[in-house]
Structure formats: structure tokens, C-alpha cells
């Protein structure tokens, strides 16, 4: 039975950070995910690829329960984060989202200063000592390779930054709360090649510390920065393996057709 058995790439050193089993997701009557099962390795970059509407973003948004915001969503199956069921009735969604950060397709800095954008996650968590905030802001901006560009204008509006800087600011904002996992939903689709290269470099750096799941339409990007790749088609997980395997020697004919550009 496809999907009930976990797809798992051959060599994983650490136990999986996220474990998905038999996940079905419905938007009203329409089923968007069919019995998805996969394990996401800790401190690795996992890429989700597939044509538009294949359910890869929907799956990503399951991991921090962003789908709760959408009316009429029903979910079946389980998602375990570090062994804990994230759909458990006593789970605190706010705590979950602190542990699973997210970077969106369209950069969405708040209409506040650069400093306040990075400090936001801590402020809503109740941190208000200036010294603590200052430290975290600097560390996060350095972590997002943005510090040198913005250190002289921390208190200017974040909306004055360029598109690429805004996206890195969003990454810094996510990093500031020190999550375990960072979800990236097509983070470079609105960026030019130079800004994209910077973000990809950053992803390389970040994986030393965080587990990263990235959704992308850009096959080269998946090939460049991910360790594992999952290919989705029509709400089903078709193939999940080492990135090298997916691109060089896929087991599935559909995967091969997609990665070689013959459809999708």
C-alpha cells in the first residue's frame, strides 16, 4: 500500500525531526493530500518539488498548522515533531509555531523598523529587556547575513529595504526565536538571481543549526541546496530520496519526466 510505509532516504544519521504518517488533507470536499508519509531529517535541507497545485505548500503549512487559518480544512493522519503529535488536542499552537518558523513566498516585513521586525517574535513572547533584544537582533541579522548592510539603519522602516534584503530580514526574524525547524515557501520566487544566490548561501549556513524544509519551483535550486528531495504530483508523494538520486537516477518515470523538464 503506497504511502502507509514511510518513504525514507537511505542514509540518515539522526532520527527524523518530522515524521508524517498517512496524512490526508481536504479543502471542503476536495482532497489536496493523499496518504502522505515521509520523514524529514534533522539539520538537513529537504526540498519539496512538483508542479503547481501538487500539494507541496499545503504539506509545508501543515507543519506549523498554518492551515488552521483556512476555513473548511480537515486533516487526517499524524504529523510528529520530535515525537510529539502536533494535532494533539492539548498542544499549544503558539509554542508549536515558536519551534517551527516560516518564511513566505512574498517577503512580508511588518511596517515597523528593521529592529522591531527582528525583535517581534521575542516581544510577543514577553521579552522586553533592551540588552537581551539587542543581542538577539544582532545575532539574528548576522545569522541572516544582513547585519553589515543594515547595522547603521536599524531603526529605519523595514519597507525601505530591497526585495532580497526584505526576504533575508524575514529569515532573520524567523531565526530570532530560535526554532528547531524553518519552513521556506518558495522563498526566492520573487527575487532576482543575485538575491537568490545570497539566500541560497544563507540556507547552506543555516542548516548547521536548523532543520530546513523548502518548497521550490526552481529545480536547479533544489539540486543546489537540498540534501533530500521529495517529488509531489496531484497531492501524492511520488518519490522521496537523496537529492542526487532524484536528479541523476530517479526510480519513477514521472519524476524523471518532471526533473528533466518534459512536463510540469
Amino acid at each position: 500500500m503506497p504511502g502507509r510505509e514511510a518513504a525514507r532516504p537511505a542514509a540518515t544519521a539522526l532520527p527524523p525531526k518530522i515524521r508524517v504518517r498517512g496524512l490526508d488533507l481536504f479543502y471542503g470536499a476536495k482532497q489536496a493530500l493523499h496518504a502522505v508519509a515521509l520523514d524529514i531529517a534533522e539539520k538537513k535541507v529537504t526540498a519539496f518539488i512538483g508542479p503547481s497545485g501538487c500539494g507541496k505548500s499545503t504539506l509545508l503549512r501543515c507543519f506549523n498548522r498554518m492551515n488552521d487559518l483556512v476555513d473548511g480544512v480537515r486533516i487526517r493522519g499524524e504529523v510528529l515533531l520530535g515525537g510529539q503529535d502536533i494535532h494533539a488536542p492539548n498542544l499549544d499552537v503558539i509554542e508549536l509555531r515558536k519551534r517551527v518558523g516560516m518564511v513566505f513566498q512574498k517577503s512580508n516585513p511588518f511596517p515597523k523598523s528593521i529592529y522591531e521586525n527582528v525583535a517581534y517574535g521575542l516581544r510577543v513572547a514577553g521579552v522586553s529587556q533592551k540588552a537581551a533584544l539587542d543581542g538577539v537582533v544582532e545575532k539574528s541579522l548576522r545569522g541572516a547575513a544582513l547585519w553589515d548592510e543594515v547595522k547603521d539603519r536599524l531603526h529605519e522602516s523595514a519597507l525601505g529595504l530591497s526585495g532580497g534584503q526584505q526576504q533575508r530580514l524575514c529569515i532573520a526574524r524567523a531565526v530570532a526565536v530560535e526554532p528547531d525547524v524553518i519552513l521556506m515557501d518558495e522563498p526566492c520566487s520573487a527575487l532576482d538571481p543575485i538575491a537568490t544566490a545570497k539566500v541560497e548561501e544563507l540556507i547552506h549556513e543555516l542548516k548547521k543549526q536548523f532543520t530546513i524544509v523548502i518548497v521550490t519551483h526552481n529545480m536547479q535550486q533544489a539540486a543546489r541546496c537540498s540534501d533530500q528531495t521529495a517529488f509531489f504530483y496531484l497531492g501524492k508523494l511520488i518519490e522521496y530520496a537523496e537529492t542526487r538520486t532524484i536528479f541523476m537516477n530517479p526510480a519513477n518515470a514521472q519524476t524523471e519526466a518532471y526533473v528533466s523538464g518534459r512536463f510540469g
Binding site: M66, I94, R97, K98, P109, F110, P111, V177
Partner: peptide, 17 residues
């Protein structure tokens, strides 16, 4: 914009915040 709301929620802010 929805992005602004989601960005805030994704950082662990409550609905009221």
C-alpha cells in the same frame, strides 16, 4: 494583506497580539 497576519502568527504571536 494576509501575508502580514501570517507572518505574525508564524512567529508565535497569538491572534490577539
Amino acid at each position: 494583506p494576509r501575508g502580514a497576519r501570517e507572518g505574525s502568527l508564524a512567529l508565535g504571536a497569538s491572534k490577539f497580539q
